[in-house]
């Protein structure tokens, strides 16, 4: 094909994609507005301190932000999420790839995997606190143990889907080990890693809150525990929404741009 034609098609495709994205924005904003409207009407109708209005929640968040508490607890929780995420992604990816590539390892580890993935999160957390102690290490371990089996299963599929033809090509041309991982394997695993990270972040932050509630003296989970004892729904919602906002920001400012960059070679959007 003529390169000019190729460039033109790519440009047209890009324009089409952008316009589609812009058209989607008002709909999602409208939908969000509808959510807050419903909430406001419900709160006004209930007229009960247990059902605060969005404005009361926002006011609480502003107060907590002003005195620094909000950011302190958010950052503590975020640090735990990050630590557990890194540990479970690293360990899960390694085990998943090994299981996907070597059938013998898969046979040995598969029953353990099924056991672990069916173990209730609460049991893992309680056992970690009892065996390791009420420490940061126990908290991170508990969360990572909950998430790792998920990563293993996703990456095992990824390893099974690796194209043997490209591996043969790399062998014939004597690719270095680095090039084999960086240029042949990782790009093929990228969608699987992205899927594991996406579902991982959402799952991990929910479990981190439970871990904080059960055995830590700071973080969003601890604050929610505190306000639960005071029956302060405004504060509970305030902390929950603050953290959801952080996670949405990570999705839109970090995960999605990164994914767009990594899949720019694709002729058509998946």
């Amino acid at each position: 094909m003529d390169p000019d034609v190729v460039a033109e098609t790519a440009e047209a495709e890009e324009t089409r994609r952008t316009s589609r994205r812009y058209r989607r924005v008002p709909t999602s904003l409208l939908s969000l507005a509808l959510f807050f409207l419903t909430w406001t009407v419900a709160a006004w109708w209930a007229h009960d301190p247990d059902v605060p209005t969005p404005f009361a929640v926002a006011a609480f968040m502003a107060r907590e932000a002003a005195n620094g508490d909000l950011f302190y607890h958010l950052s503590i929780t975020l640090a735990r999420v990050a630590a557990a995420f890194v540990v479970s992604m690293a360990v899960g990816t390694a085990i998943g790839l090994a299981m996907g590539q070597w059938r013998e390892i898969d046979r040995w580890l598969d029953p353990w995997l099924i056991l672990l993935i069916n173990m209730p999160a609460l049991v893992l957390i309680v056992l970690c606190y009892i065996w390791i102690g009420l420490s940061e290490a126990a908290a991170i371990t508990a969360v990572a143990l909950n998430k790792t089996p998920n990563v293993v299963i996703t990456l095992r599929e990824g390893a099974r889907a690796l194209d043997p033809k490209l591996a043969e090509m790399a062998r014939v041309y004597r690719f270095s080990r680095l090039a084999l991982v960086r240029d042949v394997m990782l790009p093929q695993l990228q969608p699987y890693i992205a899927a594991a990270s996406r579902s991982g972040l959402a799952l991990i932050w929910k479990i981190v809150l439970v871990v904080e509630l059960l055995g830590r003296s700071n973080g969003v989970g601890f604050q929610i525990h505190l306000y639960f004892q005071l029956f302060d729904v405004t504060a509970i919602l305030g902390y929950a929404f603050a953290f959801v906002a952080v996670m949405i920001a990570i999705e839109y400012m970090l995960v999605q741009p990164l994914e767009t960059r990594l899949t720019r070679w694709r002729a058509k959007p998946a």
């Binding site: 090509m169 041309y173 240029d183 042949v184 790009p187």
Partner: peptide
């Protein structure tokens, strides 16, 4: 040095034409 041309091109779709060639270089 042994080179091969397979039945299918077997190029890395996520690398450009030039990168595909350069990656094979010793």
């Amino acid at each position: 040095r042994i080179a091969a041309v397979f039945q299918e091109p077997r190029l890395l779709p996520w690398r450009t034409v030039e990168q595909n060639v350069r990656l094979a270089l010793p």
